[in-house]
Amino acid sequence: MSQPLLSVRNLSVAFGRSKVVEDISFDLGAGEILGVVGESGSGKSITALSILRLVPAPGRVSGAISFAGADLMALPEPEMRAIRGRDIAMIFQEPMTSLNPVFTCGDQVMEALIHHRGLDRTGARAEALKLLKLVEIPSAERRLDDYPHQLSGGMRQRVMIAMALACRPKLLLADEPTTALDATIQAQILDLLRGLQRELGMAVVLITHDLGVVAEVAHRVLVMYAGKVVETAPSDAIFARPFHPYTEGLLASIPRLEGPISRLDAIPGQVPPPDAMPAGCRFAPRCRYAAEPCRAAPPPLAPRGPDRAAACIRTPA
C-alpha cells in the first residue's frame, strides 16, 4: 500500500469531559474493506461521523484525517460538503428513518445525481434506474416511483446503497448496514456489498458489532473498546489467533453454529462510562490477565509482526 486513500492520525472526540474516541489512528487503502468492530460505547460510529465531519454539536474533534491527499480537518465547509456524498458516502443502520418518507425512492436517488453530477432530470432518472438495477432491486422501473414505506427493510437498504453509490464514491462508510435486517436478507445485502465493492473498486469502512459479518466481508479488522483501538489485524489472522484479551474475550463469548457446545466464556463486568475511564488500560477492570502495570498506564498500540498491532503489554512481540 503506497499511498493510503484514507489516513486517520490521533483522532479524538470529546463531549465535555467524556472522551468518546481517544487517540485512534488507522490507514485504509483504495479498494480495501476495513471492518470496525466494537460494542456500543466503543466509539465506532462517532469515528465514522468524524471522517465526514458530522460529529454532533457539543463534540470536539482533534487529530488529522487525510483523504485522497486532502486534509479533511482543514477543508472549508463548502468543499467538505462537496466531498460528502460524492467521494465519501455513508449508509446507516435504519433504512426507514434515513429515507425521506414524502419523496419517492427515485426522487431520492436522483437528488444526489442532480446535485453532485449535474445531470438533468431525464438523465438522472435513467441513471437512477441503472443504480437500482445495480443493487438488484427487482422490477426496478416500478420501484422508482414507490415511496419508502412501500418497500421492505431489505429493499430500503438497497435503495440507501443505490443512493450512496450514485456518485461512484471512493469510500463508503457503512454503519451497521445489516443489523436491522433478518438473517436471510442480511446475507443478500452482504453479498451485494461485497460484489459492488469488487466491481466498483471502492474502499469500505464497515462498522458492526457482529464479528461474523466482519469475518465474511472485511479484509482487515480494527477492534475498538471504550473509545480506543485495541487491536488491528488481517481478518483471517485475528479470528485464528486474537492477540488482545478483549478480542479473545469477544470471540469466546459468542455462541457458535458448529463444534462442541461448551459454556460461554463471558467477559465479566461492563464497559466503563466515558466520564469515568480507568487511568491505565481501559479493559483492565474486565481483563483476566490484568496485572499491576496495566492499571498504571494505558498500553500503546504496538506493532506485532508486519501487519498486526495490539494495545496490550502482555502480548509477546
Binding site: 463531549f15 465535555g16 467524556s18 456500543s40 460505547g41 443489523t179 458489532h209 466515558p274
Partner: peptide
C-alpha cells in the same frame, strides 16, 4: 445493538 451504551451524561 446498543443497549449497553453507558449514558453519556445522566
Amino acid at each position: 445493538m446498543t443497549a449497553e451504551a453507558p449514558a453519556i451524561a445522566a
